[in-house]
């Protein structure tokens, strides 16, 4: 039995302890904001926070979230107005949008740990998150904007 909190709500899970967190969130809880892009920790589309740290949901077994706090894009801010979310809209970052939940969760974790990242630190932190639409330039700018607000 795995016990965890997801976006502040206590949950219990009795199934396969190896099931990746991503599929638990999407298929069991219906929280579809976290996306599947590769299933192998290579693209970042599934990024969520586990005890505040950015983790790839597709390669994190649910058993490893036992006793922990999981935050998804749906729970990042009650009104959807986290500084990173606001910066994303101000820069009109998304194209197709599919990668953006992962990008936002990655950026939010970076800024909570390092509120004033250097350019290189931004690139290093965001490099695991692929955007096939090619919004990197706006992501970079939006992280900088958000950094002035956190």
């Amino acid at each position: 039995m795995v016990k965890l909190r997801v976006n502040g709500v206590s949950r219990q899970y009795n199934g396969d302890p190896n099931m990746p967190l991503l599929w638990y969130l999407r298929d069991e809880l219906g929280l579809t904001g976290s996306k599947y892009g590769c299933g192998a920790g290579l693209c970042g589309a599934c990024t969520v926070h586990v005890d505040g740290e950015a983790m790839r949901g597709c390669i994190t077994a649910i058993a490893d979230a036992d006793g922990k706090d999981v935050t998804t894009i749906e729970g990042l801010d009650p009104k959807g107005n986290h500084p990173v979310q606001r910066a994303w809209r101000a820069h009109a970052v998304p194209q197709c949008g599919y990668c953006q939940a992962g990008q936002i969760m990655q950026a939010a974790a970076l800024l909570s740990r390092n509120p004033d990242p250097s350019d290189q630190e931004i690139v290093d932190s965001m490099d695991g998150n692929i955007c096939r639409c090619g919004t990197y330039q706006r992501i970079f700018a939006a992280v900088k904007t958000a950094a002035t607000e956190v």
């Binding site: 579809t32 904001g33 996306k35 894009i73 749906e74 959807g80 009109a92 998304p94 949008g97 939940a101």
Partner: peptide, 21 residues
């Protein structure tokens, strides 16, 4: 003109093919 779906996209509310049940 600001793009239509950016609030949904940035809050996890946008639906793609795999999100339909």
């Amino acid at each position: 003109v600001p793009a239509m779906d950016h609030f949904d996209i940035t809050t996890g509310g946008a639906n793609y093919g795999a999100d339909i049940s």
